[in-house]
Amino acid sequence: MNQFRRAFLKGAGTVGTVAMAIATGLLKPGAVFAATWNTLAFTTKDLSEAISNAGYAGATDSSDIVIKAPDIAENGAVVPVSATCNIPGTTSMAIFVEKNPAPMIADFAFSNGAEPYISTRIKMAKTSVVRVSVKAGGKNYTNSREVKVTIGGCGG
């Protein structure tokens, strides 16, 4: 239980982090959605603001984050993206699309044996860099990949 407690104390320091979510989830197993939605990070139009509000600021570039996405997406409304992180001790992963009206796409926290891998489909307003950031061993890492979009997914 000691490491849970440590995670809780660590999480309590930074407001709105996913660590907080996990920790409170452990303390109250009955409540499924322990975390409140990170409104600040998801609603901002500014990429760097979104990244720092989500807690992924100051990340080092790392090729150990493998992003799979098409070079050219025909339809920006549905762009398949998957990401795997090969850095040991990865606890969470977030996806950002730099030129979207709301750059932050999603944030995933892994625990209890979940592999640091996510596959999903995202919206892209126009050709942009897709950035995947991870937290591993108390440090932040990031990698990016450009996806060309021929038809945008947000706004007609």
């Binding site: 996913v18 979510a21 996990i22 989830g25 499924v32 959605f33 322990a34 975390a35 939605w37 990170n38 998801f42 409304a77 549905v78 762009v79 398949p80 998957s82 996806i95 699309v97 979207n100 709301a102 750059p103 932050m104 796409i105 999603a106 944030d107 995933f108 926290a109 892994f110 625990s111 209890n112 044996g113 979940a114 592999e115 891998y117 996510i118 596959s119 999903t120 489909r121 995202i122 919206k123 997914g153």
Partner: peptide
């Protein structure tokens, strides 16, 4: 939130940038 036998394995927050009729794929060890 994804669970394995009731234990949380993935806790995620999504924005509006996830495509319509969302798909998510993930892997759990053990």
């Amino acid at each position: 939130v994804a669970t394995l036998n009731g234990k949380t394995v993935i806790d995620s927050q999504w924005g509006t940038g996830i495509a319509k009729n969302p798909f998510i794929g993930f892997r759990i060890k053990g």
